[in-house]
Design a binder for these strands. Structure first.
Length: 316
RNA sequence: GGAGGUGUGGCCGAGUGGACAAUGGCAGCAGACUGUAAAUCUGCCGGGCUUCGCCCUACGGAGGUUCGAAUCCUCCCGCCUCCA
C-alpha cells in the first residue's frame, strides 16, 4: 500500500544539521515537523536533546515534541502510531509532513510497519528482572531456547535486554517473538516517504559533536539536569538514559567532575553517531547529501530533490 | 655524586622464566538490531599470509644465562623520586 501524498523524512547521524534543514524545508514548502527523536519527546529535556527552540516551534509546528514526562516509557511502536496520526492530520490540512529524527528503529517502525507484538507487561518485566539477578542470564537464555528457539539462536547470549524482551513477549502473549515477527515482518505496511539523509566526514562529525556538547554545557545543561533532579525526577527514569543526561546526573550527584562527565558524553555521542551510520547505511531509498558546509550551500540541492518526488505539483 | 624506582603494542596500563603477539581500558574500524533504540549487543585492532591455522618482527638499546626471557644477569641510554 503506497500512500498517495508523499511525506518527507530527514535522517542522519546526530549533529549533522537535520533540524535546521527541516525547518528551512518546512518554511519553504508549507510543512510541519514530526519529531522522530526518542528523547526530544520528553518534557524538560531541552538542552541536551538539542530540542528546537520555542521560537523555532513558533515558526513551524512541531509534533511529538514534549509529549512525555521523563518517567514515562516511549517505544518504537508507540511512536509509529502517534506519528502516523500526526502525518494524517497534517495531510488532512493540506500541509506537508516532514519527519525528522535519528532514531533508526522508530523511523523503520513508522515507514515499514512493526509487528503488533504486545507492548509488554510491567509485572512480568519486573519478575524477569528479579530472576535475572537470582538465576543469572544464562538460565534465562536457556529458558528462551525452550520457549523461542529461533529468537534464542538469533540473539547474542549476552544481550540481556533483548533476551528479557523475548521472554516477556513469549510469556505475556503465549506466542514466541519470532512468530509475531514472521506473521508481520517489516515492510508489510509501507508509508511512502521521500527520504533525505545528511552525512558528514567522520572527523568533522566528531568535531561538531565536541563543540556541540561544550555549547550545551555553556547553555545551562547542568542546571537543567540539576533542576529536574530537584523537582524529584529520579535518576533512573527512562529519559535519563539519554546520552549526556546520564553523565551529567552523575556529575550533579557529585560522582563525576564536570570535565569527566563532558568527556564521557562526547565519547558516547561519537559512538552513537557511528551506530546511527551503521544503521542508516543499509536503509534503502535514502538520498544522501553532504552537510559539511552551511545549509545555504546544499539546501537548494535537497529542495530540488524533494520537489522531484511529485511534491512540485502539490506544493511547489 | 649517592640511594631507590621506572621504561610494555597509537595512548594508558597488567604481566615478573614456558600456556605471551602479550589481561584490561582508551582511541580507531566494522557489524547486529522488530516496542528501553541517545538503548542493548558482537567482532577486528603489530605486520604478512593459503586467516578455525602458519610465518615474521616485537615488551628502551646491546650483550649474556637458559632447552626456553617482556620476565634473570651485565653494561649503556631515557625518565622519575629521595638524599647530597
Amino acid at each position: 500500500m503506497t500512500s498517495p501524498v508523499p511525506t518527507v523524512a530527514i535522517t542522519g547521524a546526530t549533529a549533522t544539521g537535520k533540524s535546521a534543514l527541516a525547518l528551512a524545508l518546512a518554511e519553504r514548502l508549507g510543512g510541519e515537523i514530526v519529531n522522530a527523536d526518542a528523547l526530544q519527546a520528553y518534557r524538560g529535556l531541552d538542552i541536551g536533546t538539542a530540542k528546537p527552540s520555542p521560537d523555532e516551534r513558533r515558526r513551524v509546528p512541531h509534533h511529538l515534541v514534549d509529549i512525555l514526562e521523563p518517567d514515562e516509557r516511549y517505544s518504537a511502536g508507540e511512536f509509529a502510531r502517534r506519528a502516523a496520526e500526526a502525518i494524517a492530520d497534517i495531510r488532512g490540512r493540506g500541509r506537508l509532513p516532514i519527519v525528522v529524527g535519528g532514531s533508526g528503529l522508530y523511523l523503520r517502525a513508522l515507514f515499514e510497519g512493526i509487528s503488533p507484538v504486545p507492548s509488554g507487561d510491567p509485572e512480568t518485566r519486573e519478575a524477569l528482572r528479579r530472576r535475572l539477578e537470582e538465576e543469572g542470564l544464562p538460565a534465562l537464555v536457556a529458558e528462551l531456547r525452550r520457549l523461542d528457539p529461533a529468537t534464542a539462536a538469533r540473539l547474542a547470549p549476552g544481550d540481556t535486554q533483548r533476551v528479557l524482551r523475548a521472554l516477556e513477549v513469549a510469556q505475556v502473549s503465549g506466542k514466541p517473538l519470532s512468530t509475531w515477527i514472521t506473521q508481520q515482518p517489516f515492510g508489510t505496511q509501507r508509508i511512502a516517504a521521500r527520504r533525505v539523509g545528511l552525512t558528514l566526514p567522520r572527523a568533522i562529525l566528531y568535531d561538531r559533536i565536541a563543540r556541540r556538547v561544550a555549547r550545551m554545557v555553556q547553555g545551562g545543561w547542568v542546571e537543567e539536569v540539576a533542576g529536574l533532579l530537584a523537582q524529584g525526577v529520579s535518576p533512573g527514569v527512562p529519559a535519563f538514559q539519554a546520552i549526556g543526561y546520564r553523565q551529567i546526573v552523575r556529575h550533579v550527584q557529585g560522582e563525576w567532575s564536570l570535565e569527566q562527565a563532558v568527556g564521557e558524553t562526547v565519547r558516547e555521542t561519537r559512538r552513537f553517531a557511528k551506530r546511527q551510520e551503521t544503521w542508516f547505511r543499509k536503509e534503502p531509498d535514502i538520498a544522501w547529501f553532504p552537510a559539511q558546509n552551511d545549509l545555504e550551500d546544499y539546501f537548494s540541492d535537497v529542495f530540488e530533490h524533494v520537489k522531484q518526488s511529485g511534491l512540485g505539483r502539490a506544493y511547489g
